[in-house]
C-alpha cells in the first residue's frame, strides 16, 4: 500500500528574462508510489531535482503540474483541520542541522515547539516526554537546557531527528541528513535511523547523493537524473547487481575504499 503517491509531477522555476520571464523545467513526468514502512531513496547528483521533489512531497512547494496524494488526501487541496492533521503525519530532517534550528532556543524549546502547536502532551508531562525523545536519539536530560551552538553537528542532527519524531509521524523526509557530518557521525546516524524506523514503524523518503548510505538504509531506490526518474529498484540487491554491468555513472564516481584499488592516482 502506498502512503504517498505522486502523479505526473512536473515543476519549473521562473528565470529572469529580458522581455518575458522564462520557465526553467526542474522536474518532468514524475509518478511514484512510496510504500508504507519502507525506506524509499531518491539517489542523484546535485542539481538533479532531489530537494525540489522532496519539498513537493512535503507540501511546501506547489508543483506546476500533477498531484500529491498523502494518506488518501490531495496534499495541495486539503485545508484547515485536514491539512493540519496531514502535516502532523509528515515531518522532515534537513541537511544543515544548524540552520534548521532557532539559535535562541534550547533543545527543550526546539522539540517542544511542534508539541505546543498540536497540544499533543499535557504541560505537566512535556518535560518527561521530551527527555524520552532525547534518550531515543542517544542524548540525555542534561542536554535539555543547551543551545544549538553547544552541540556538535552530529548531536544537533539528533535533535532535529527527535523534533521530527515528536508528533509520532507516519512519514519522514530525510533530505541529505548525513552529508554534512564526519565519517564517525555518519555511521552513528545511519544506525540510529535504521533503529527508529523499526521502533516507530516509520516510512522514510531518503534523499541522498551517497551511494553507500543509500545501500545501507534503503528498501527501494529510485535514481533521479536531470529531473526525471531514470531507474527504479525494489531491493538494494537489485540495485547493486545493476552497478555490476556496464559503467554505471554513479558507480564510476565511487572512490576507492583502499589505496590498492585507487582509481585516480596510481601508487608511487
Amino acid at each position: 500500500m502506498a502512503i504517498l503517491t505522486l502523479t505526473d509531477i512536473a515543476h519549473s522555476y521562473q528565470k529572469k528574462g529580458l522581455f518575458q520571464p522564462k520557465q526553467a523545467p526542474v522536474l518532468e513526468h514524475i509518478s511514484l508510489n512510496i510504500p508504507v514502512g519502507q525506506c524509499f531513496t531518491l539517489l542523484g547528483v546535485s542539481g538533479a531535482g532531489k530537494s525540489t521533489l522532496g519539498n513537493i512531497m512535503l507540501g511546501i512547494e506547489r508543483p506546476t503540474r500533477g498531484t500529491v496524494t498523502f494518506l488518501g488526501q490531495n496534499l495541495y487541496e486539503a485545508k484547515g483541520a485536514t491539512l493540519k492533521q496531514l502535516r502532523r503525519e509528515l515531518q522532515v530532517v534537513f541537511q544543515d542541522s544548524l540552520s534548521a534550528v532557532d539559535p535562541r532556543m534550547t533543545a527543550e524549546q526546539i522539540i517542544a515547539e511542534p508539541l505546543d502547536n498540536y497540544q499533543m502532551v499535557a504541560q505537566a508531562d512535556k518535560r518527561a516526554y521530551i527527555t524520552e525523545l532525547l534518550e531515543q536519539v542517544g542524548l540525555s536530560a542534561d542536554d535539555l537546557t543547551k543551545y544549538p551552538r553547544q552541540f556538535s553537528g552530529g548531536q544537533l542532527q539528533r535533535i532535529n531527528i527527535a523534533r521530527a519524531l515528536a508528533l509520532k509521524p507516519k512519514l519522514i523526509v530525510l533530505d541529505e541528513p548525513i552529508s554534512s557530518l564526519d565519517m564517525v557521525n555518519q555511521r552513528l546516524i545511519i544506525d540510529l535511523l535504521q533503529r527508529l524506523k523499526e521502533d516507530f514503524q516509520l516510512t522514510y523518503v531518503f534523499i541522498t547523493h551517497d551511494i553507500k548510505a543509500a545501500c545501507l538504509l534503503s528498501d527501494h531506490i529510485a535514481i533521479l537524473e536531470a529531473g526525471t526518474i531514470t531507474e527504479q529498484y525494489t531491493t538494494v540487491a537489485d540495485f547493486i547487481a545493476s552497478t555490476k554491468s556496464a559503467a554505471h555513472h554513479l558507480k564510476t564516481s565511487l572512490l576507492a575504499e583502499h589505496p590498492m584499488k585507487r582509481t585516480i592516482r596510481s601508487l608511487p
Binding site: 564517525v184 545501507l216 552497478t243 575504499e257 584499488k261
Partner: peptide
C-alpha cells in the same frame, strides 16, 4: 582502527571495483 571501522562500507558494491 576505530576510524577505519566507522566507515560506511557496502562490500557487495565494492566487489570488482
Amino acid at each position: 582502527q576505530h576510524l577505519i571501522k566507522a566507515r560506511l562500507t557496502v562490500p557487495a558494491l565494492e566487489e570488482g571495483l
